[in-house]
Each structure stands twice: as structure tokens, then as C-alpha cells.
Design a protein around this nucleic acid. Sequence first.
DNA 1: GATGAAACTCTGGTTTC
DNA 2: GAAACCAGAGTTTCATC
Lengths: 154, 154
Amino acid sequence: MDAIDRKILAYVQKGGRDSYAEIGAAVGLSISAVNERLKKLHTCGAIQFWSAAVDPRAVGRPILAYTQVLTAGARSDDVDAFLNAVRRNDAVLECHHVTGRWSYLLKIRTESLESLEALLSGIAAAPGVTQTHTELALSSLKETSVVPLAADGT
Amino acid sequence: MDAIDRKILAYVQKGGRDSYAEIGAAVGLSISAVNERLKKLHTCGAIQFWSAAVDPRAVGRPILAYTQVLTAGARSDDVDAFLNAVRRNDAVLECHHVTGRWSYLLKIRTESLESLEALLSGIAAAPGVTQTHTELALSSLKETSVVPLAADGT
DNA sequence: GATGAAACTCTGGTTTC
DNA sequence: GAAACCAGAGTTTCATC
């Protein structure tokens, strides 16, 4: 993982289907070298998978919410059941164990307020869940999953 | 935007560099048809760009934080300046205007607690910012940007 | 679908540390 | 000596018809 690897990663996060020739031109490498580096970045886990960035609004998933969940006082088994349900539900994009007053922070993307309500009702009623609080996103100034990669870094 | 388009989108969010033949086999289309559909999905904005999903921990960006920002009472110009600074800073992955007690919710990814502290100090000191509150992610059960796409949807 | 053009994979050889 | 890079041939894949 050197500076060239980071340049490649920075590039392919925005140009994931560009040819190896283009990537090579951008980072100063031959086609073969780009091929080898990318293969290595994939096997070492730096590149998890290749993806198309889909606009949620263009495909009918305009509702975005962040839900804080408290599990204090719940049985460990119940919390595990809640987390498994979260893992299986693909409307829940993110689930983080967080510091502070709350236990978990969920990022949720749905088709409508109705489906959000149904999902939140299910979460609030789960045995492992003590309390919830939801904030709705009215608009998004930016929303990316591109990992910042300057020339330095570890 | 029909059911096949949604199947294509669901597929390419996880297999973004697969060949058109593989995509076609998965959704029941010829190579040419996949080619045409993808081109259309790109021009209509459903596919924003192609990307490699990079593991933040594998590239030295392990710190993840969510910061709530209050701008109540601030001058409109100052809030705009804050938002522009946010837009330019690529450590801020997301910025949403949200309902509830806070004005904005920021998702921040940094290399270290030190760089997070520096970033948060800057935000808290901005003229447009009245108050902030930050929660640190201790661990992440899931973190994806894959938009959920069932067979239905709009 | 078929065809020309482009891109990818793999091998072998060279350089560098 | 090992690791990384480059170049070329053969194969696959893509874009246009």
C-alpha cells in the first residue's frame, strides 16, 4: 500500500469502469502494472467490490432517515436478535455502535413514509429495543461513500 | 425504468465490473440489450458513476463520526459559508438537512482522532454554527451504499 | 445477432532494490 | 533473489450496424 496504490484507489472510486489504460495514464503506470495492482488491492481487501453508484431518488427510494436506538437494560439475546433483523433488512443501509446517550445509529432508506413508518414500528417493538429517536433528511447537500485519500495516509 | 432495469441496477451495485454477458445472464437479456439499458440508465441519471468500494480501515481511515450541527440564530450568509466549507472538505462524506432539534447531520471519516478533532474544532468555530454534538462509531455492523431495490418500486 | 475495434489476461523478459 | 514493471500475443468483450 504505497502512494501509487492510493492514487489508483482515489481514481477508481470515481472511474470504476475506466480502462486500465486510462487508469495507468492517470497514475503513471503501464496497463499490465495497473492490472496487477488492482488484483492485489482486491485480494488484500482494500477494494471490496465494484459497484454502480445509483441515485436513490431516480429509482424511487427518496426517503432517508437516521434512527438512534437505545438497548440499555435489554437482555443480550434480545439485542442480538435486533441486530440480526437489522442485518437482514436491506432498507437499513448502516448500523453503527456509537458512543453517547444512544446505543446504535441506523441509516435507513425507503420508498415512502409509509414503509419507513412500518420499519420503525417494527424496530421500536423489538424486545431488545428500549427507546428510539428518528430524524428525517429534508435534503442532502452531499452524500458519498468515496473514502478520502490524500497522497499521505497510512 | 421497469422491473428489468431494477434488476440490472440491483446487480451492478454489487458486480460493477462484471461483463455484460454475466449481467445479461443474471437478468435474462442479450449482451446488446444490457449495453443499451446501461447506457440509458447512465444518461437518465439512475447510475451516477462507476466505483470501487474501498474499505476505509484497509486504507488508514478508521475513524467514523456523526456530528449534529445547530445553525439556529446564525446569519444566512454564515450558514452558506459553513455549507460551502463542508462541501469542499472530503472528510465530510455526507451532509443532510434534518428535522428535529438539530439543523444538519454530518458523516465524517478521518485518519485519526487528532484529525477529527481538528476538523470538529473548525466546524464549531465557524460563524454559522451555534452548537455541535458528535458521536463516535465504535464498530459498524453494516455500512453500505447499495440502494435497496425489490422487484416492485416506482 | 454479426462484425470490426477495443480492452483484458497471461507469459516472458527487464529493471531495481 | 525477490518484487515490480513493461511489452507483446492471444482471447474476450464491447459498440455499431
